[in-house]
Design a protein around this nucleic acid. Structure first.
Lengths: 136, 136
DNA sequence: CCAACAGTATCACTACACTAATACACATGC
DNA sequence: GCATGTGTATTAGTGTAGTGATACTGTTGG
């Protein structure tokens, strides 16, 4: 069976933009193995109807996922999941992480945290979030 | 001599909000020891004139710094630097770093990076930014 | 009290992010 | 060709963050 629109839980009034909720959930579903390469995403209109939002909003989210290399657009058919972690090779994934982490590291130095303290904090975060992943 | 408005390098058209540039630079100056507890910040109007921005913009930045516990407001006189790292003890500074780093770690796991790869990237960032600090 | 310095409350303006309404292009099956 | 299914370009509306103009309060020193 194709993935249904019920995959997503969207809360338009949560303060978090709808398109961002959608992107995060697709990525999480892929990371969690509930969406595998080759699967089609539920159609824009289907999701839009289920969540009572505008199709364009869903489309924008899907477009961003395409730009990120998470899904592929199949004209007239829909969006197909690509290989997870294949938006680019290791080099690109590392770069994305570096860009995301740089401000935090910068701030940590300003705060006078030592390298050791920073690594320890990172370790703790890794443990917590790894746990959260297996609970999915 | 009191710190002059030339302390700051503000670029209104850089995409980064002026008030944020100001906040970051004050924090950096404190972290770098060029502003010490008891120093007064250059006055709102002085900074505003030097950077050709509105006094209110500077005031907003100063207010945020006060909320963060970085400076203290002295009625009729100006803003005085408080103890650096005293907005809270180590515990709080670590917490701030954790909050800042959490999204990056989360994303890294989604990207399939290993703990080892993450730590290595953090090490590289630490080296780069430590170098940047000593060049100041 | 008054002048000159400090910060700021209030209000208005602008830019941009987010969302949505509409109409359109491509694919498939009849 | 036409109906129905995809996604989307275009355009417009809305909310909010950032900035600024103005007029205000508090402090210090004459």
């Amino acid at each position: 069976m194709p993935p249904s629109a019920g995959l997503f839980e969207l809360h338009p009034s949560s303060g978090i933009p709808i398109y961002r909720q959608l992107i995060d959930q697709v990525r999480a579903l892929i990371a969690g193995g509930r969406l595998v390469p080759g699967d089609m995403l539920p159609s824009v209109r289907e999701v839009a109807r289920a969540a009572e939002v505008n199709p364009m909003t869903v489309s924008k989210a899907y477009s961003r996922l395409e730009i990120e290399g998470v899904v592929e657009r199949v004209r007239g058919q829909g969006m197909r999941i690509l290989e997870p972690n294949t938006g680019g090779p290791l080099r690109e994934r590392r770069q994305e992480f570096r860009d995301l982490a740089a401000p935090a590291i910068h701030r940590a130095l300003q705060l006078g945290l030592t390298d050791q303290q920073i690594h320890k904090a990172v370790d703790q975060l890794l443990e917590e979030q790894a746990a959260r992943h297996s609970n999915d």
